[in-house]
Design a protein around this nucleic acid. Sequence first.
DNA 1: GACTCATTCAAGAGAATACTTGAATGATCC
DNA 2: GGATCATTCAAGTATTCTCTTGAATGAGTC
Lengths: 224, 224
Amino acid sequence: MPKRNPKQELLAWTAEVARCLGHAHRLELIECLAQGSRSVESLAEFIGQSVANTSQHLQLLRRFGCVASERRGKQVFYQLADARVLHAVAAVRSIAEIGVAEFRQVVRKDFLSLDGTDAVSRSELSRLMKDNAVTVIDVRPSGEFNAGHIPGALNVPMAELKQRLSKLPKRKEIVAYCRGAYCILSFEAAAQLRAQGYRVRRMEDGFPEWKAEGRKVAESAIAH
Amino acid sequence: MPKRNPKQELLAWTAEVARCLGHAHRLELIECLAQGSRSVESLAEFIGQSVANTSQHLQLLRRFGCVASERRGKQVFYQLADARVLHAVAAVRSIAEIGVAEFRQVVRKDFLSLDGTDAVSRSELSRLMKDNAVTVIDVRPSGEFNAGHIPGALNVPMAELKQRLSKLPKRKEIVAYCRGAYCILSFEAAAQLRAQGYRVRRMEDGFPEWKAEGRKVAESAIAH
DNA sequence: GACTCATTCAAGAGAATACTTGAATGATCC
DNA sequence: GGATCATTCAAGTATTCTCTTGAATGAGTC
């Protein structure tokens, strides 16, 4: 650790934290952990890496205050250390959104082409749900849904969307949400449903941001 | 650039931006540029690095949307691209504040020992100034003061503090501010003034955050 | 048009990072 | 107490990053 004066020491530690966020796999781990706690093996599968490599990434994240770990029986479960980790990732992403042309291009080509409509804000969704004006669907896999979801939301994992189309109301507007900003699931869900004639919008960001705002959360069971 | 699916591509670009913030010198450049635009040579001197190396850091920051450059005559002036760069740095720092023990330790040892009092919030300072209840001093070097400061603030660079003690009112409370969070200048100023019997507090963060909030700003001249 | 000067580029040495492999740890289960 | 299993550690290699040095660029100046 390079040290000069106190100010530079703080900058060096801050930089370490930033570097710790500076890897696609680690960002993916953070997004995954934001849905709920998970074991190392399950995380390794999620990011498509070896267990050893995943463990090393997790230890780095833990070293710099991004995640926490806890032993439950044979397994070690990791979880997000603090909601401000999500804020930091969102803040960094917001720089990419305006300053990195390639980022904007991917958004345009792969996300907005699926659903270019404006997302429903969380506060607006809250109001709409109170009036029973919309059907809210959670398109994440059931494990993540069970670990926590918006109360009143219906779990319709993307994989099952086609089979469950008939169960969804055609006239009431549908609002889909998933893991967070630029999670492709809700974009795909919106595209598929709209193609079938449903009225559908996405919620901005995803469940972790809903929870981080202190809104009500429903939990069914512990998964993984 | 590693590519798999669109989601991972966005994560990879976001990670690049985070890595771009992940170096003490670059964070120092950002903090410096937050005070106002500067030439490469002046920035190199500020961070104590060669011009070539500084230029490379600046180009990286520019590549990832953190700073912008503009030619003025012979020199190239860099400036902060967007206030959300400061937000991102602050968000990352907030992780370090709670999650990195070494960070907290430096804060305790080198900052809180100088001035452990709570900082004055920007909104409170605004109120106090309206009532003419405090003397506000800007302890940054005059070049940075001239590039922009809080209207009504008195520029008392740290280097000149001792000589100018007599000009400061003893009974009215003094509020000192400087470059930003954990800029050591305002802590040192508070410590020195308090040792001389002045009533003094620091303003939270610094001038860039005041400006980023859309508050009034005074500008005298262009420096460097 | 040649000169000057600030900045950028290019190449290279040394350090740090990421991923792999295989072994070590340490808690549970029988 | 020994076996089992998830996780972590340790060592090795390929890649990337940082900083240095010296040359190239290119806009202003005489």
